[in-house]
C-alpha cells in the first residue's frame, strides 16, 4: 500500500515537471531577447531529463 502511495507521488512529480517545463519553454521561446534563452532551456532541459529519467527508473523498481 505504501509503495503504491510513493509510486503515485513519483508519477505526479513527473507529470508536474513535464508540464512546468513546457510552460517554461513556451515563455522563453516567445520572449527571449538574446541567446541566453537557448542556454537556459538547455540547462533546464538537461536537469529535468536526468531527474525524470531517474524518477521513472526508481518508481519502476518499487
Amino acid at each position: 500500500m505504501l509503495d503504491l502511495v510513493f509510486k503515485g507521488v513519483g508519477w505526479v512529480a513527473i507529470v508536474a515537471a513535464i508540464i512546468y517545463t513546457l510552460f517554461l519553454i513556451n515563455t522563453w521561446v516567445r520572449y527571449s531577447f538574446d541567446g541566453v534563452g537557448v542556454a537556459t532551456l538547455g540547462v533546464h532541459g538537461l536537469v529535468m531529463f536526468v531527474s525524470i529519467s531517474t524518477l521513472l527508473t526508481l518508481i519502476n523498481t518499487l
Partner: peptide, 18 residues
C-alpha cells in the same frame, strides 16, 4: 521505508527547488 523511496523524495525535492 526503503532507500528507493528516500531517493525518490530527494529527487522530487531537488526538482521543486530547481
Amino acid at each position: 521505508v526503503s532507500d528507493t523511496v528516500i531517493v525518490i523524495f530527494s529527487i522530487v525535492w531537488v526538482m521543486v527547488i530547481w
